[in-house]
Design a protein around this nucleic acid. Structure first.
Lengths: 200, 200
DNA sequence: CCGGCTTTATGACATTTGTCATCTCAAAAT
DNA sequence: ATTTTGAGATGACAAATGTCATAAAGCCGG
């Protein structure tokens, strides 16, 4: 099967590609170190499967997966990610991906999963099983927007300017966010959101 | 040469080990997924070289490197890390490591560097060259301690309890930290420290 | 058209943060 | 023995943060 590997960390990308290429039935036809490049390569080379990291420059693996689905490309998508965050997983499922693997899994799982997916099956890291249902992101899209600004260290006033709102309104939103996330303060809120994958 | 690979991310650890093992002159005698285990294995198996990730559970790769040096073990140390943070690099140099590689480098660099180190040389990722001199950590150890608590989202009062200081003193320290780092607020300070590798 | 929902705004308030100048006390340095 | 230094404390203050109740305006579905 023809595979594309997209992963921004050079060493991991190289190592995975090299190992996959050693398998008789797998051929790595291209590598990408960012999401945009990955998408172009998928369109150009029409591989059977693309292996996508989530946290990549320019476009996340989830963005790419959604575009692949939207444009009806036949390429099957397998997501490869560092953290077991339910937010990531849910978004991936909604994008109709065929596999979702943790970088923490043993390397043997990778080629096995690719084969499963190639045969029409789905492959999910066993470690994910527990994280399945919990924690839908409770924040509205405006709240998420504000939380991202908080994470950049902006003050209420700065956010107000950025979003053309009054600083009072911003403080109300922040207050709402803290309550929804059950956070003690801004820093706590960032940590909680990050852990759940709500800051992608 | 006999090598130990310590890296908490299973897939990378497996992939690197597998690839290194394919080389005729390299034998991976053990793998560790945390710092403590790595140190034990180094003591028990006396490998020629250990390849250490920095961010690992229980003990960071830098901690391990320092212990190896302190106990006079003959094992040469090669650090492998995600980010090019001068704080990491400086601490590693002080611990007398023989190699310092970025996970972003191409995979070929790895075995080449191990050979260089085995022959008594030093191997540093070229990408590091620029980051060499700047940014010694300006914070005292107490300030660093407090910054870590800040990063955990503690309020001044909570920190005061934790460290048996008055909350006023804590606020003085925080104020100092912000000035030294030229940060606008706590969140900004965390970001700056993180970028420079001062939160290990 | 009405009632409910959402978005935004306001004002009042308590708490927390951040800044500064100043003070004590003990340990180090001279 | 006296100065210097450093860690810690205090108090006063301005600014930012967090909480709440309330209200205006707009939109949407029935």
């Amino acid at each position: 099967m023809r595979v594309i590997v997209a992963e921004d960390q050079g060493m991991l990308r190289g190592a995975l590609s090299a190992l996959l290429d050693l398998e008789d039935d797998i051929e790595v036809v291209a590598q990408a170190d960012n999401g945009e490049q990955a998408l172009e390569l998928i369109q150009a080379l029409q591989p059977d499967i693309c292996l996508l990291d989530i946290e990549m420059p320019k476009m996340t693996g989830l963005d790419v997966a959604e575009k692949v689905k939207a444009s009806g490309l036949p390429c099957k998508v397998v997501i490869l990610t560092t953290f077991s965050r339910s937010g990531y997983f849910q978004r991936a499922m909604r994008a109709g991906v065929h596999g979702f693997l943790l970088k923490d899994s043993p390397i043997e799982e990778l080629s096995a999963s690719l084969r499963t997916v190639q045969l029409g099956g789905r492959a999910v890291s066993p470690a994910l099983a527990l994280t399945f249902w919990d924690t839908e992101n409770p924040l509205t899209s405006k709240e998420q927007e504000i939380l991202k600004l908080i994470a950049q260290g902006l003050s209420a006033n700065e956010m107000a300017k950025e979003l053309f709102l009054s600083s009072g309104t911003i403080r109300n939103y922040v207050s709402e966010i803290l309550q929804k996330l059950d956070a003690k303060n801004r820093i706590d809120a960032i940590a909680i959101a990050e852990k759940n994958g709500w800051l992608v």
